[in-house]
Design a protein around this nucleic acid. Sequence first.
DNA 1: CCGGCTTCTCAGGCTCCTCTCATCTTTATC
DNA 2: GATAAAGATGAGAGGAGCCTGAGAAGCCGG
Lengths: 219, 219
Amino acid sequence: MEDDLRMAAAIRRGLQAEGLVADVATRGEDALWMAGATEFDAVILDLMLPGIDGFETCRRLREDGVWAPIIMLTARDAIEDRVRGLDRGADDYLVKPFSLVELLARLRALARRGQAERPPMLEVGDLRMDPATQQVWRGEQEIQLSRKEFVLLETFMRRPGEVLSKFQLLERAWDYDYENRSNVVEVYVRYLREKVDRPFGVKSIETVRGAGYRLRKDA
Amino acid sequence: MEDDLRMAAAIRRGLQAEGLVADVATRGEDALWMAGATEFDAVILDLMLPGIDGFETCRRLREDGVWAPIIMLTARDAIEDRVRGLDRGADDYLVKPFSLVELLARLRALARRGQAERPPMLEVGDLRMDPATQQVWRGEQEIQLSRKEFVLLETFMRRPGEVLSKFQLLERAWDYDYENRSNVVEVYVRYLREKVDRPFGVKSIETVRGAGYRLRKDA
DNA sequence: CCGGCTTCTCAGGCTCCTCTCATCTTTATC
DNA sequence: GATAAAGATGAGAGGAGCCTGAGAAGCCGG
């Protein structure tokens, strides 16, 4: 049970990483209700659902006119389960444990939908950032940033032109209750300038004395 | 043997009654030859074939570009057989004795899923991969990879340029509930680099410290 | 049943990141 | 121009994150 929830979460994350969206139902009845309410592209069905069991859920889904592909997840050696499942209208099955690649491959085959949408690029003036690939460019030139530097720059680029206080920056990029007397932000702003501005002879990260910092809109 | 022939005949009659046509091969070699000569919608493969054995036959069929669904028949209720079979490209398997209804149900399910298309080649820069035959090349040079190495590289090649966290890689290429505290990913990334990069003097698999790894788009 | 290959673990080493601290520079205010 | 506050900078300690080599365990084919 614990385990199943972990698995559901893992699958969900996996799908999200693929640019797909997933809803999770922990009980057969919920699954039926959800399927009735929304149109899904595919259904992944764990046979061990409490309440109405997986087979019955599958049968009823079909009965309710859900024609999306259904993939069933079965425990290790319950072989007969598969026949029952296939006969009740499932399209495929996976034996646990399985890897996400496997599941995704089967989903692709079944749902054959367009490839994943990627999180959009951030652009501020000359600066471009791809949050998905953790890459940053100024013009054509790629810039290598450390993790913290990247997160800090992302914070700026999501609020171009706005003044961000050191406290705001701390909250967002460090998510930590830092003591006020630390000067990490100042230090990291400096690192950023060193990599993002100086080599290009620009000054896109401005200091607003007494208030914080600001990334120029025309960075 | 006697028995197997009787079974083959029975299956054939059963399929005919369903309006389907079947050819029977009694030896692995014959099966390969027939599959090469004609295009089948599905293959039912008895593991106990004389001559080349069932597993090998299955592997060769896939290698020869036969993409029809393959159902294996096995006398043994051994899990390892199933795994071996699926590893070699079978789509499903049945334990003898089984009922014709059962066999037909699975055939229907497989046919419905209509997976008879060959998975496309993956290409990233200089790297090419055929997910179906488990082959990988860099330029003209073929590269030998173990199963895990292959799955890992496939994961990278399906998301070129993107940073994949170790966690993502674990979830995708290993079992969904693999322990997190292991450093398998690091080790396998190293193995991959050893085979895919080093001999060619390139660095296509990049470490993104604190985030994961990335396969360069221009690998 | 043996030998090779694959998978995975573990411990130690190394690199680079993160953050602190002390000091220097700039800016505002008198 | 003197003084204080705010910010910038350099240097470096410590540690997290990653790499590597060795080897145990399991599987497979001969």
